[in-house]
Design a protein around this nucleic acid. Structure first.
Lengths: 134, 134
DNA sequence: TGCATAACTTACTTTTAGGTAGTAAATGAA
DNA sequence: TTCATTTACTACCTAAAAGTAAGTTATGCA
């Protein structure tokens, strides 16, 4: 398990060193082009807590506009990363849940979260300097 | 080590479940706001191969324009994620290297790379359908 | 049919990202 | 001083992203 992981990590750096990798043939470019965006990752992260309604997400992903929320959900549906279930009730209820594909992002995102916590002071300082200045 | 990792992962999900997390007080929002963008992550990823010149990056990060490259480098310098060294030569030479802070992203990014490889078929199919249609 | 409500969409505007092209700075040698 | 070359910046323009606000759909029940 540990050894296998090590092999994977080596192959990561090696494959990056191969000269032809940074175009559409590079899987990193492909996946970054698809999901490396703030709202997408925040919605996915929120859904890792479990199934959520549209209104739950609207409340919990602070700062997202209704339009961006449904746009993001629509995209993630197309990607097959979330599923959508409508309950025939009054008022209508719609629930979103991660698929296996979407849930598979737990590991990278939790790794990213660990990193964020480790460097929290730095990150907050930078954030204040760069984003606060407007 | 394994146990510690498990604890970390639990605390990740727990802290996401705390009700007040998804605003600027949430470190995930802060770090995503800073670096969750395609070019930034691609430049960082490329620099994980080692020190690079501007022209190296221009060649290896396929698709990036000169403007976006220097803009991204400038931002990463401000963040303290890379360092810049000028050699007094003809022609001038400038080298960029990850700082400890920048290099600390190896783990999350390699985790993300592993994920991309695991789901490569899916990702390429989606990419063709969504980005290829223009 | 009308109603109340969550979910979603559309139209419009503003803001930001990004491309191109031209220009300027830095450098040591000729 | 002039040069060739890499690097970096500026100005201008276009396209894409994202916010706002209004309107639309879906739903079961009265």
């Amino acid at each position: 398990m540990e050894a296998e992981k090590k092999i994977k990590k080596i192959s990561y750096l090696e494959s990056l060193s191969a000269r032809s990798v940074f175009d559409e043939n590079c899987i990193i470019q492909v996946s970054l082009a698809l999901i490396a965006d703030k709202w997408t990752l925040l919605v996915l992260t929120t859904l890792m807590q479990g199934t959520k309604r549209n209104s739950d997400l609207q409340r919990q992903v602070i700062g997202i506009s209704p339009k961006m929320l449904s746009q993001t959900l629509k995209t993630l549906l197309k990607y097959g990363m979330i599923s959508r279930k409508v309950y025939p009730e009054v008022p209508p209820r719609v629930e979103y849940t991660l698929t296996e594909f979407g849930a598979s992002l737990v590991e990278p995102l939790s790794s990213f979260y660990d990193w964020s916590v480790d460097w929290e002071d730095q990150l907050r300082t930078i954030y204040k300097k760069t984003k606060g200045k407007k």
